Simulated assay, not measured.
Amino acid sequence: MYDYLSIYSPGYSKTIRTEVLEEYLKFFLNFNKESSLRFSKIHSGELIRVTGILANSKGNYAFNSLDGIEEINLIEIDIPENINDELEKTILNIAKSIAKEYSWLIDLGGI
């Protein structure tokens, strides 16, 4: 099990196109695309991973693959095991930036 922080549309009712998220993460937040809706970057020697997800109205999801998903309403940022104050601040800034861009909410979960 791992910890993560979630960014989601209020009531999971608003979605964004996957290509919109990809462009924002790559060009504004300098993430690299790993695979469909999975992005990462290294900060202070630790991997920060972001995943876009399509969830139901209660925030639940189940998937075998993110291939073919065209819209999302939930973004999860994995919290690295070796988190420190600097890395926590960086992850929070990433989350705040995404939430502000799409007028979404942040659930701090594991932080």
Rank of each mutant, 00 (worst) to 15 (best):
N82W: 05
P10N: 14
I83A: 02
F39A: 11
L29W: 02
L108K: 14
I16C: 03
L29V: 10
G110W: 05
K96Y: 06
Y102S: 03
G109Y: 06
K89I: 00
G109D: 15
N84W: 05
R38H: 11
E22S: 13
L5Y: 10
S57F: 12
N60Y: 14
D78I: 12
F63P: 02
T18E: 08
S103N: 15
N32F: 00
K14G: 04
I94D: 09
E22G: 10
L108M: 07
D107F: 05
D3C: 01
H43K: 14
G109F: 13
P10D: 10
R49V: 13
I7Y: 00
K89N: 04
S13Q: 14
E46K: 12
L29I: 08
S57K: 06
K89D: 06
N73P: 12
Y8K: 09
I48M: 02
S44I: 09
I91R: 01
I98Y: 01
L5P: 09
I91G: 04
D67Q: 08
L21P: 15
L5R: 04
N64F: 13
H43Y: 15
T51P: 04
E86C: 01
I53G: 07
N73Y: 08
G68A: 09
E88P: 04
Y4T: 00
N64C: 13
I53R: 08
S35P: 01
Y2E: 15
S9K: 07
Y12R: 03
N60K: 14
I83Q: 03
S13A: 14
K89P: 00
E88D: 11
V20S: 00
I91C: 08
I83P: 08
S13T: 14
Y12S: 05
D85G: 07
Y8G: 11
F39H: 05
D67F: 07
Y61S: 11
I94E: 10
K96E: 14
I98H: 02
F27W: 02
S40Q: 13
S36N: 06
I98Q: 06
D85R: 15
N73A: 12
Y12Q: 09
N56Q: 11
F28I: 01
E101A: 01
E71S: 12
L92M: 10
A55M: 06
I94C: 02
G11M: 11
G68Y: 01
E88C: 07
Y61T: 11
E86K: 12
Y2R: 10
S13M: 10
E81C: 10
Y61I: 11
D3P: 00
K41P: 09
K14V: 15
L92Y: 07
P10G: 12
S6Q: 15
E101F: 00
N60M: 14
K14H: 11
T15Q: 12
D67W: 03
